[in-house]
Every structure is written in C-alpha cells, then in structure tokens.
Design a protein around this nucleic acid. Structure first.
Lengths: 182, 182
DNA sequence: AGCTGCATGTAACCTGTTACATGATTAT
DNA sequence: ATAATCATGTAACAGGTTACATGCAGCT
C-alpha cells in the first residue's frame, strides 16, 4: 500500500465518514484529489482494510460511509511503528528566490512580500482552528486523546509558517543593506 | 514547460555544467533523479533553451556541458515575474504524529526524538555550507550577486529546521504534562 | 440566473521513482 | 576487495493532476 492509503486509515481510525469528507481531512495530512481517493477506497475495501455502509439521501446525493476494520487498524498500527520516509518538499518560490539576482529590486521585494501575506493568511486561519480545538475539548492535551495529533499538527504548521515570515523579513533586511535607502 | 525545467534553467543561468553536476545543484531547489533530468535536457536543447558542448575525457566518461541560451534566459526571466504556485509538502512523519494516540508513550517519544536527531544532522551540514559561503565571497550579501539566492535558501532551511526542532521539544513537553513523571 | 457544497466515479495525461545497462578511476 | 564518484541513457511502473460526467439543494 502507498502512503495515501495509510493517511486514509489514520483518518478513519478516528471516525467513519464519506469519501468526500475524508478528502478535506486529508488536506493537512497528505493532500489528494477525489479522483485519487475514490478508486483507492474501493481497492482498500476489497482488501478488507475498510468497510462501508450505503446511505441513501433525498436532499443530497447518496453516499458511502466508510469505517476502518480490525485488519485496517492492525495495518495502521504496525506502519506507525516503522520509521518514516524522508519528507518531500517542492516549492516554486524557492526557485524564484534562487534566481532573484536576475530581477530588479522591486520585483525581489514584491516576491518576498507576497509570500509574507500568503503565510499570514494561512497562520490566521489556523489560529482560529487552534483556539476552537483548545476550547471545545480540554483534554486534547493528552497523548492518548484522538484530538491530540490534529492539535499538534496545526501548531506545527503555525510554528513553521511564522518562522518563514521571520526569514522573509530577514531577507528584506539584507535587501536594504545591499541597496542603501534612496 | 514544467517546473523542473525552470529549476534547470535557473541553475544554468549561474554557470554551465554537466547533467550530473546539475543533479546535485537541483537537490535544494527541486529534487529530481537523473532518469528525469537527462531526457528533459535533450528536450530543452531541441527547443533552443539550452546548448551543449561535447567534452571527451580519458580518465572519466565523456560528458556534455550544457549552457543556457538567450532564449532560455528570456524564458526564465519572464517565469520569475509570474507569481509562484502553491508549495507541495508531503511528510509521512505528519501522518504518524496524527496517529500517535494509537501507540504507547515510548514509541511516541521515540518518533519525536528520531525526528530531532535527523533535523540536527541536516542543520549541522548546512551550517558548514553557510560558513563556507560567508567566507569565500564576501559580496554574496547583495541581491545582485549570483550567490545570494543559494545563501538565502540555505539560511531558510536552517531557520525552518531549527524551528521544527523547537516544535518537537514543545510536543515532548506536552507528553510530560499528560504523563506525570513516574 | 449562477455559484457553492454535497457526492461519486472514470479517462487521459503528466510527473516522478525504480530498475536495467555500462564502465573506468579513486579512495577506504 | 569494495564502495563511491563521475557520466549518460532507456523502460516500466507508480503516484498525482486535469478534465469529463452527473445532479440536486440552498444561497445570493
């Protein structure tokens, strides 16, 4: 099985839901399009890692509610105990920073400032989610809580995005050093 | 053209080199295997973005030294001025953190501590590279220098990896809070 | 009237990884 | 001896994106 499969198991280990809802839970974990998710769900169900219940709806399209099986749970548990593969990062922004010497100072500043504003947006969105999590369930702070992982990861993203904002400002500072203020 | 193509152009805009050397320069920018690089170099050469010189060697295999053409340079310049696409991050570690509630406290601590040691290794390696860059060319600090981008990116990676270490320690702190010391 | 959310699926395509292929030199 | 470095290429496969396909409910 591929990593997406384990990400799916880890979502269903917390609660059963539809493929559609699954997709949004996966966003922070291992982003995937529905065209990748649905065929994999079928495959995993056939392998006995998942099972589903058909829900007929009138006001909305029918759906399948998937839940994890004992076999799926075992598979997930043993995977967690293996050491994780290296992370994959691909960011066009880095290539543009690398090539920043080819542009003028204005474009350089714009590139960094746009990055800062995008990061600030993301941080603000997560900040509200973190607050919600902190008020809704107060026992999220213990490792054995289902909610601990999501809480930790939301914080991680904000730690890192805030730090990238710091780096952006550090770069802007270097610009000013190279280009004495007119 | 795809993003790898622009990453390639951005390396060749700094200096001509072989496909083999290119691969190592790409690692920090947009990692790719040689099996992806060589066919793309051929394609880009045919499109007039690159040109190469055949170098015959006796002690080593023959090689092609690629350099960027004027057309390649123009293509790169206009691409830099477009706003970058969203970053892609995929990290198995995150899925394991998300599922940490399924394991015992020892495994949880191990997962985080292993992450810390891997990050520390990476940071240490980059630290020497940053020092080298800082001593070798002192004018790297200006935006218009070819070396500015690499210097900025090396620092960025260390800013972020150090911050992730901080987050790891923050998580370890939460573990102690949930599990009163035996 | 048109957009967003819910809901699932397939097909074509592009991107990226692993494996196959070869071979000399230099360092451990 | 054996591994690493230099050096280039192809083939098969797995992973991921974009586009095609359908359709109702509720909001603006």
């Amino acid at each position: 099985m591929n990593t997406l499969g384990y990400a799916i198991l880890s979502v269903f280990s917390r609660k059963p839901c539809s493929g559609y809802q699954l997709a949004s839970s996966l966003e922070v974990l291992w982003p995937a399009r529905h065209s990748q998710i649905y065929p994999l769900l079928t495959k995993m169900e056939k392998r006995g890692l998942l099972e589903y219940e058909h829900i007929e709806q009138t006001s909305r399209p029918n759906k399948k509610i998937y839940s994890i099986t004992d076999k799926g749970m075992e598979t997930l548990r043993s995977w967690i105990n293996e050491s994780p593969n290296d992370r994959i990062k691909r960011d066009e922004f880095l290539i543009k920073v690398y090539s920043i010497w080819l542009t003028d100072a204005d474009r350089a500043r714009e590139l960094i400032e746009d990055r800062i504003s995008k990061l600030k947006e993301k941080v603000a969105l997560r900040e509200t989610k973190i607050e919600e999590a902190a008020t809704e369930e107060k026992e999220h702070l213990t490792i054995s809580s289902k909610h601990f992982g999501r809480y930790a990861l939301l914080n991680r993203s904000n730690f890192l995005d805030k730090e990238e904002i710091s780096w952006c400002n550090w770069v802007l500072g270097l610009f000013e050093d190279s280009q004495p203020t007119q």
